[in-house]
Amino acid sequence: MKTMKLIVPFFLILFSIVMLISSFNLQKANLGNPYGPIYFPAGISIFMLIFSIIYLMQELKNIHKENPSIKLMLSGRTPRLICVTILFGIIYSFLFERVGFLISTFLFLGALLFFINGKRKWIVNTVVALSFSFISWYAFSELLGVSLP
């Protein structure tokens, strides 16, 4: 619980350091000031590093204060909901161009609905998934002429 609070600041510190190092490893410009492309990202990374450290210290100071959101995030079926949504999103990304828009969208929306809304409401879920993937396909592809796979 307490360590959870520190994950974000630590991540940001790490991120700033990585950005700082890669800023200095950027290719130098052949035209004009060779360091032109480097100043801005390097400067920003340094500021970001400073602020992440201050942020870390703030969180350390308040380490005993509870953050109700974190507690909620780790309780009940929330962690599963988040992970599964992301996972479905990844699967959808792979399916999208391979099996086409209609089928992949129906599967994705259906899966999300079944998972979030529960199996008991399967009628609603199926109807929504079917109608919605068809309507969105029709609206985008036919009416707006967006090229969908």
Binding site: T85, G89, Y92, S93, F94, F108, L112, V128, S136, S147
Partner: peptide, 29 residues
Amino acid sequence: KVLYPIIVLLAFIGTYTLSYSTMDFFLLL
């Protein structure tokens, strides 16, 4: 519980129309 899946889907479609690439889906997530 019905609305959220639909929002997620709309987010994906909206993203796709930006540059027609599923690569952006990963950025989105």
